[in-house]
């Protein structure tokens, strides 16, 4: 019984984390039809920026609300700057080229970001554990959970609800969905597709940085953290169907639970689980769980 609870809670925590690192990627994917590998770079930037802010701000080490606020500031700041630089400075020159070219351009951007990161922060390991320990722990029977981990679930729910509200209840959100649904038609009816593209990309990047910021207290921050995250986020997005937010949510929950189950039951399988789920889903549903099947007109 306690095993089941542990799997469930760990699974949901993991799912929340997966969703937070992948949601920005799937958003960008939906609007721009790009799998943005540089997303991993933004994740790393978000983590580093958070660690820096927390080390600068003495109060952050004492109270958790301030450190949460700092994470948000770090994510929005880094995401906006880097995202805007990438979209305006690089991506817009290759729109309309092959899918392949777009992916490789973001791969190149990712490589560049990795080195810029070490230029700014050096290659040493840094930590920002304070928010993690500040929140304390909760005991349920014989199990203890970190409150920070549990709060990730809350953040993920907030992000989901917020996105759902923004996309279905606001004018801009509806227009954005029109762009996702049919770019050309959106252009014809007079939506400024270019501006929506830029904004979405920046928002996606902010989410990427936010994923890193929220992860920062849980890990030791060092070069290479983005490399590992990007495949995981990729997998979640692909499982859910590229561009589908409900898909990413479902994909995260599925992978999160499967991973937690593996950790507790078959630890050797842990590294594979996500790719097993990915191959299984792709084998059955070619374009992921929630992708609309496009039929070509002839």
């Amino acid at each position: 019984m306690s095993m089941l609870v542990a799997i469930l809670v760990d699974g949901l925590v993991n799912a929340s984390w997966l969703f937070l690192v992948a949601v920005g990627l799937t958003l960008v994917c939906g609007v721009m039809r790009i799998l943005n590998i540089a997303h991993g770079g933004l994740y790393a930037f978000g983590a580093y920026a958070t660690a820096t802010l927390i080390s600068w701000w003495p109060a952050a080490r004492l109270t958790s609300p301030v450190s949460f606020a700092l994470m948000l500031v770090a994510a929005v700041g880094v995401g906006a700057v880097v995202g805007l630089a990438l979209e305006r400075g690089l991506l817009r020159f290759v729109y309309g080229r092959d899918e392949v070219v777009l992916v490789l351009i973001t791969f190149a951007a990712f490589l560049i970001l990795e080195d810029v990161l070490t230029l700014i922060w050096g290659a040493t390991v840094i930590a920002a554990y304070q928010p993690y320990s500040l929140l304390g722990r909760t005991s349920v029977g014989r199990l203890t959970f970190s409150n920070y981990d549990l709060s990730l679930i809350v953040v993920a729910v907030l992000v989901t609800v917020g996105l759902w509200w923004a996309l279905t209840r606001t004018r801009r959100g509806l227009l954005l969905r029109a762009v996702i649904h049919d770019r050309e038609m959106a252009q014809i009816v007079g939506i400024n597709v270019g501006r929506y593209t830029t904004i979405t990309f920046v928002v996606g990047c902010i989410f990427g940085a936010l994923g890193g910021a929220l992860t920062a207290p849980m890990i030791s921050i060092q070069p290479g953290i983005g490399v590992e995250v990007i495949v995981v986020a990729f997998a979640v997005v692909v499982i859910g169907g590229m561009g589908s937010i409900p898909g990413a949510l479902l994909g995260s929950i599925g992978v999160g639970l499967a991973r937690a189950a593996a950790v507790h039951l078959l630890p050797d399988l842990e590294v594979f689980v996500i790719y097993l789920v990915m191959t299984a889903v792709l084998a059955v549903r070619k374009e992921g769980l929630f992708a609309p099947a496009a039929v070509r007109r002839i």
Partner: peptide
């Protein structure tokens, strides 16, 4: 990686 990425771009 910077050199690599730049030459790729």
């Amino acid at each position: 990686q910077l050199i690599l990425g730049t030459s790729l771009v």
